[in-house]
Design a protein around this nucleic acid. Sequence first.
DNA 1: GGCCCATTTATTTGTCATATTAATCGATTG
DNA 2: CAATCGATTAATATGACAAATAAATGGGCC
Lengths: 245, 245
Amino acid sequence: MDRQQSGRNLTQQLVHVLGAAIANGRYRPGDGLPSEASLCDEHGISRSATREAIKMLTAKGLITSRPRQGIRVQPRARWNLFDPDVLGWILNASPSLEMLREFLQLRMAIEKEAAALAAADQDRQKVAAIGAALQQMKEAEEGLRDPVEADIAFHINILNATNNPFYVQLGSFIETALRVSIRFTNRIKGVETASYANHKKLFDAIDRGEILAARAASGAMQAEALALIEGELDRREIEGSVATA
Amino acid sequence: MDRQQSGRNLTQQLVHVLGAAIANGRYRPGDGLPSEASLCDEHGISRSATREAIKMLTAKGLITSRPRQGIRVQPRARWNLFDPDVLGWILNASPSLEMLREFLQLRMAIEKEAAALAAADQDRQKVAAIGAALQQMKEAEEGLRDPVEADIAFHINILNATNNPFYVQLGSFIETALRVSIRFTNRIKGVETASYANHKKLFDAIDRGEILAARAASGAMQAEALALIEGELDRREIEGSVATA
DNA sequence: GGCCCATTTATTTGTCATATTAATCGATTG
DNA sequence: CAATCGATTAATATGACAAATAAATGGGCC
């Protein structure tokens, strides 16, 4: 294993190599990974480093290891999907439209309520942070800033403004997934074109403490994105059946 | 460290000891933990086992460790709250009413949409599993079964019936939190008394594919529980201010 | 004299190598 | 059929050295 690489230590490098390999299906649930000894040989590192990597993957729910049985991949239901690393490996392995839809279905739930909670809580400082991100989105429309970063910041700041640690924690989850899915949806259509107006409407509702309006505005935005994906899924299905007919 | 204890190996024992200590505030964010060497001494185990425990806690986002700086507790926003271990440590450390409310605010978001998705997806086999859990709740009312287990199974099965891996994964999260919070709310009032009727209404809506009704029924149940907690919070606040007056 | 920057030093984790122990699956044998 | 034995694999222990880096140190400059 390349020792100079990427500022990460050997253990972390191996964690990412194995995590990605598991996520992309090179090792499948139920399958065994190579034994500790083999992994040491394959990557040219010591047992300590190897074992520590295995322990980290175990902690994230991807594998188990027991004497005599070796190291096995856990069923996907045991993976900690909400761990940013795990999510990143999965999304980078296969950023499918199906998974994108599933992700949006979750955002639909989370962000609608988050908007409502933020509107209810009225933490002025954190609401201001949402406004700042909105301003950056406007500047991005004029080409002065990175539109992706501004968009992400907007959504993260809403979660922060709930002052609910569970929602705040979901920020890192949504950020990871958003980076992948934005790259993905931008290929389909100009998803984020008319987005500033929508985002402003949502911000105004939160700012004024209009709980129902905030929930509705958030839901509308998510529903729009979801409809786009589901339309694309339908289209591909029809194309597929025509092609095979 | 007691080597015969609890079927867990030394590393896992230390993980749980330290995880619990961090969650209950013995070590606070920003603070340093004892060095590797000290931890070995304190617990009477080798450096290998100690280091592997540290790596597992690192993987869960609770700590970082760097040469010369030592081991430090991460800010809470970095903790993987959705890791069942982490959540368990936190809830067992301080099952406060505030956190219970925050948890319910999250369930409100998740389970409402999950009910809608389950109603839309109409996976007959998984809907039947919800029905089976409901039946167990009925039997539990007559004292034939454990009411807590049946209640949990009901909610988990709705998440499974979404066929969305993100919602499915949240099952283990909600299960962990539910076990604690049920123990907690039962002390306050007979929360789960009239619950069978509510649960049946929700099940029927999912079973018939009535998306809006399913979302509404789930929302109503959650809102009821939430109102109870918030009422209790208000009551205690008033009592507190009277007491200090 | 006091301040800033380069250098050194000391501490702590990172990595390696090797030996031994414990758990467990499968075969063997009474 | 059951108890036992053997082989395989991870679990634990130990000791050594390397690398990273925070803090102390000292030298040069204003």
